[in-house]
Design a protein around this nucleic acid. Structure first.
Length: 405
RNA sequence: GGAGGGGUGGCCGAGCGGUCAAUGGCAGCAGACUGUAAAUCUGCCGGGUUUUCCCUACGUUGGUUCAAAUCCAACCCCCUCCA
C-alpha cells in the first residue's frame, strides 16, 4: 500500500515494516501531527548490539520525519533479571551497574538521535521510575484485571515455551503485563501513541495497545520490524569474538567496519536500506554490480554504517586500515597491536596477547593447520621467537601488529 | 506433599562401570577454490606442557570400586500427572 505519511513511507521503502496494528489510522495520525513513539531496550550489558540497530534506526527515521522518539530502558526489568533460557543463575545486576550501563547506552543513542526538550526531541526514560514503586494489590486490581490468562496462553512467547516443555516462570509470564503497563505509563506521561519493536514483540505490543484502550479509552498503535536474518537464514550479528557491539569500548571501530565489509553478497542491498542512509537510487546502482565488483558496494555499506554509529573519522580510519592491510599488504594503523619488550616475544604468546587465539593450544593448532603468517609468510615453527616488530595474521582476515618498545 | 521422567562440552543430542576429553549434528575457526562473498571439499574444535604426560569437566556433595558420565545415597533444579 502507499502511505501518506513520510514516516511510514520511508519505513516501508526501506524494509522496516512487518506488522502494524492499524496501518491506516497510524498513517493518518502521522500526517496529522507529532506522534510520540517508543522502543524498549534492555540494559543488561554496557552496550547495545547489532540486533538492536534496526529499532534504533527506526527511531531515527521517526525523528527525521518529524515525530518524537522515546527510548525506554528496562532498568526495572533488568533489576529483576530475565529468567528466560534454562540457566537459572543469570546474575542480577545491582543499581550502580545498571546506572553505568544506562550511561554508556545513552551515548550510543546520541549518535542517532537528537535529545532535548523540544516537541520532537528524543527523550530517554527508565521504567524503574514507575515499576519500582508499584504496589502489588493495587496493580493487580487496576491492571491485572484487564488481562485474561486464557488469552495470554495463546501468545507465541508463552505458547512456544509451553509446547516445548521449557520452563516459564511466573515472573516471566508477567513480563508482558509489565511491558503493557510501560506503554500505558508512557501514553500518560508523553502522550505516546506508538510502540515499535522486533517481530517477537508483537504480542507484548498488542497487549499494550489493548490495555491503553481499556483503561484510558485511547487509541494506541503498534508496529514491528521483520526479524533480520542473513540470506542463509542465520540471525545476524555474530563475529568470531561474539556480538557486534555498537559502543566503541566494546568493539573497536575497525572490527565494526569489518563486520559490514564481510556482508554476504545477497544482503548488501537490504542492509544498505536498513542500516545506512544511502539514497535508494544509489543502492540500486550498487545492487546491479556483479561478481567481484560488489566489493565496492560492501565498502560503501561499511563506510556508511560505521560513520553513522562511530562517526565519519572512525569510519575513514577503519576503511584506510582495511585498504592498507588487504589491498596494499601493509599493516594498517587501526589493527590491534601489542607492544613487546627488548627480549621480543614467543609466537604463541603474541597470538594470545593479540586475542588472535583464545589459548596457546589453539595457537598451536592454527600454526599446525597452516593458518598463521608472520609478515605474510606462513610459519610452521610453534616455538618461533619474534625479536621485534612484525605483522601477524591468522587466516586472511585477522591481523595484528607487534610494536617494539 | 505423592508418582514418574530428566539435568552431558557454545547449542541440540548419544553414551549408561574400564578402550570416555566423551559418537553424531549445528555453530565456530583454519586450509583449498575465490572476490575480505556464497557453495563445496579437507582439517581443527576444554586447558596446559618437554604431546603416547598432567590438569579440569558429564547438576551438587558424599559413598561403593583397582576403576564412575555410567552404580548407591542425600540434596538442588526442570518437566509431566496426581493432591
Amino acid at each position: 500500500m502507499t502511505y501518506k505519511s513520510e514516516f511510514l513511507r520511508v519505513l516501508d521503502e526501506r524494509g522496516y515494516l512487518h506488522q502494524i496494528t492499524d496501518a491506516d489510522a497510524l498513517d493518518a495520525a502521522a500526517v496529522a501531527g507529532v506522534v510520540p513513539a517508543y522502543v524498549g531496550f534492555d540494559c543488561t550489558a554496557p552496550s547495545l548490539h547489532i540486533g538492536n540497530l534496526v529499532s534504533i534506526m527506526m527511531l531515527r527515521k521517526l525523528q527525521q520525519s518529524g515525530h518524537k522518539p522515546i527510548v525506554l530502558l528496562g532498568g526495572g526489568t533488568t533489576k529483576v533479571g530475565d529468567p528466560s533460557g534454562k540457566d537459572a543463575g543469570r546474575q542480577l545486576l545491582d543499581d550502580s551497574r545498571i546506572a553505568g550501563n544506562m550511561a554508556t547506552i545513552k551515548r550510543i543513542f546520541e549518535r542517532f538521535l537528537v535529545f532535548g526538550d523540544g516537541p520532537t526531541d528524543a527523550v530517554m526514560v527508565n521504567n524503574a521510575d514507575w515499576l519500582d514503586k508499584l504496589e502489588y494489590i493495587p496493580f493487580l486490581r487496576d491492571i491485572g484485571r484487564h488481562f485474561s490468562i486464557n488469552r495470554m496462553l495463546t501468545f507465541d512467547s508463552v505458547k512456544l515455551r509451553l509446547d516445548r516443555e521449557q520452563p516459564l516462570s511466573f515472573l516471566e509470564f508477567n513480563y508482558m503485563i509489565l511491558q503493557a503497563y510501560d506503554y500505558l505509563e508512557l501514553s500518560r506521561r508523553f502522550g505516546c501513541r506508538l510502540q515499535m519493536g522486533g517481530s517477537d514483540q508483537w504480542g507484548n505490543i498488542v497487549n499494550g495497545t489493548d490495555l491503553i484502550r481499556r483503561v484510558d479509552s485511547k487509541d494506541a498503535f503498534g508496529l514491528t520490524t521483520p526479524l533480520i536474518t542473513t540470506s542463509d537464514g542465520a540471525k545476524m550479528g555474530k563475529t568470531a569474538n561474539g556480538a557486534v557491539w555498537l559502543h566503541e569500548d566494546s568493539l573497536p571501530s575497525y572490527d565494526y567496519w569489518q563486520f559490514w565489509r564481510n556482508t554476504q553478497d545477497a544482503d548488501v542491498g537490504k542492509f544498505m536500506r536498513l542500516f545506512t542512509e544511502i539514497p535508494e537510487a544509489e543502492i540500486r546502482r550498487y545492487e546491479a554490480l556483479e561478481g567481484a565488483e560488489i566489493n565496492t558496494a560492501k565498502k560503501a555499506l561499511a563506510d556508511a554504517a560505521t560513520a553513522l554509529c562511530r562517526g565519519p573519522e572512525a569510519a575513514a580510519a577503519a576503511a584506510e586500515t582495511a585498504r592498507a592491510t588487504f589491498e596494499a599488504g601493509e599493516a594498517g594503523g587501526d589493527l590491534p597491536s601489542l607492544s613487546i619488550g627488548a627480549d621480543g616475544i614467543g609466537l604463541l604468546d603474541a597470538l594470545v596477547g593479540l586475542n588472535m587465539a583464545a589459548s596457546k593450544g589453539e595457537a598451536r593448532r592454527l600454526i599446525r593447520g597452516g593458518g598463521v603468517k608472520v609478515d605474510d609468510v606462513t610459519v610452521s615453527d610453534e616455538a618461533l621467537h619474534l625479536p621485534g616488530a612484525a605483522k601477524l595474521s591468522v587466516g586472511k582476515k585477522r591481523h595484528g601488529v607487534l610494536v617494539a618498545g
